[in-house]
Simulated assay, not measured.
Amino acid sequence: MLPTGIGVRTSASLAQENSGTVNVDGSGIGLAFQTTTGDQIENDLDMSQSSGLVVNLNGTGGTGILANTRDGATVKSGASVNINKADGGSALVVNNFAKRGDPERKSDFIINDCCSGTGGEGK
């Protein structure tokens, strides 16, 4: 089933470096990497230099970034996701068995959780 309320949906990776702000109100998705029918994509995703890209989850049950990738795909993100409610949802959802490009390096993905008092870099 294809989710509703997607800010940006693409079946290709964005450029390595991106900037801008995507606001998600309610249970929508900020960035969805999937086909038009909601199926998995075949390519790797590399937005590793996208520190200027911010997704704000302002509602309940949203998703910052959804990567519906094939098994073995590499997913890299330098984007930030701000979860602005206690029940705001998931910062990053990766379907299937994706891998990081460099297993020795922590992800540049930053999760800012307003309500639990925690946050930090993904691993």
Rank of each mutant, 00 (worst) to 15 (best):
T69E: 02
R9M: 10
G59Y: 04
N82E: 09
A32F: 03
T118Y: 13
N56Y: 02
Q49W: 00
I111K: 03
P3G: 09
N43C: 08
A91D: 07
F97A: 15
G38H: 04
K123M: 01
F109L: 07
A91Q: 07
K76E: 15
S11T: 10
G122K: 04
L14H: 05
V8S: 04
G61E: 11
V22G: 10
C114L: 07
G28I: 05
E104R: 15
V81C: 10
Q16Y: 07
D25Q: 11
E17Y: 03
T4F: 06
P103K: 07
G30Y: 08
Q34M: 13
G52A: 05
T63M: 08
I110V: 13
I6A: 00
K85L: 13
T21G: 08
L2E: 09
L57Y: 07
E104K: 15
G88Y: 01
L45I: 15
G59W: 01
L57K: 08
I83L: 14
G28R: 05
T10N: 08
C114V: 02
G72S: 11
N43L: 04
N18Q: 15
L53V: 01
G26I: 08
G38K: 06
G120A: 05
T74G: 00
D25A: 13
D108V: 01
L14E: 02
N68H: 14
S19P: 02
V55Y: 02
N56I: 04
G62D: 07
A67S: 08
D113R: 08
D87W: 06
A73L: 11
A32W: 05
C114D: 14
G20F: 10
F97C: 14
S27K: 11
N95G: 11
V8L: 15
I110D: 11
D46Y: 11
S13V: 02
F109W: 08
